[in-house]
Design a protein around this nucleic acid. Structure first.
Lengths: 157, 157
DNA sequence: GTATATGCAAAGCATTTGCATTAAA
DNA sequence: TTTAATGCAAATGCTTTGCATATAC
């Protein structure tokens, strides 16, 4: 499976309109986690007449097709992640809501049988919270505690 | 620290109105992950005149005080988790959106230095996805694949 | 040519806010 | 008595929908 969304879409039986192409083109790259509104803005740079409704429709279709991941790890509107090929987790900055993909570092902890209560587990998502370099700097400078209240410190190798 | 929300709130300097008490009383128990609307409905059984705005205000205050956790792991509106004392993760049913708390089973995987890209990691959240016993049964019965598309199977001990 | 995608504008939730009234301390 | 919380209703933000028109195949 190619890691390129456009290439995969061409091999699918999916009507490729100018609008859908514009949306797909915007969703290329690493650490891309755009909101629907951001996708709309960027797509309009390529195709000024594309409507908000079409962007929402297209994003929902791509998600249903498994070509796009919905991520809801930060405040505000949902974000869309085109990285469906490599298993990865998310690192979210509590200061500026920036998101980075990080490769899955190892097997996630396994839940004991009794704690599962009969649930069948089919997948695991891991979200790391923290501060990006810029926000960490500002944080140290101002002594501001926003974004870390209640968080445990995690040992970093 | 007591595990009881009401008890903790009494020791805090927080005006305890009938409305706030009703909200806090609703938020007692294990595996409680109510939406704001559900909190409103249940609180109204105790105090019929409580308004939606007050429920939202109160929930936001409790979250800001660290007495309540906002969880956004399922479709639809945010849910509120009163279990702030024990570190735990969430097990979410893809069929009916039910949520169970599960104790943290072990240390989460550690992100390699280079993958962190200068981020300071301060916390980790783990969400297990799957099917609750009832939905798993229905799923086997109907051959329905809803809720598991794209998920990897995780070995269960 | 026909099925399907688009754009528009309106509707739909979830949530927040401004402000006059009410109640806690 | 003073300060802060409540309720209402209106506003906001994000997302979906109905339907007539345009377009890919």
């Amino acid at each position: 499976m190619t890691s390129d969304l456009l290439t995969r879409l061409r091999t699918r039986d999916w009507r490729l309109s100018a609008q859908r192409r514009a949306v797909a083109q915007v969703l290329v790259g690493e650490h891309v986690h755009l909101t629907a509104e951001q996708v709309h803005d960027l797509a309009r740079e390529r195709l000024p007449e594309i409507s908000r409704a079409t962007v929402y429709n297209t994003l929902n279709e791509l998600v249903a097709m498994g070509e796009l991941l919905e991520v809801d790890v930060a405040d505000g509107p949902k974000r869309y992640d085109p990285n469906v090929v490599e298993r990865h987790d998310h690192l979210v900055c509590e200061g500026c809501q920036a998101i980075r993909d990080v490769p899955r570092a190892g097997p996630p902890p396994e839940i004991a049988e009794r704690a599962r209560g009969g649930f069948l587990v089919t997948g695991v998502e891991i979200t790391y919270r923290g501060l990006c370099p810029a926000c960490a700097r500002r944080h140290r400078a101002t002594g501001d505690r926003r974004g870390t209240a209640g968080d445990e410190m995690v040992t970093v190798p």
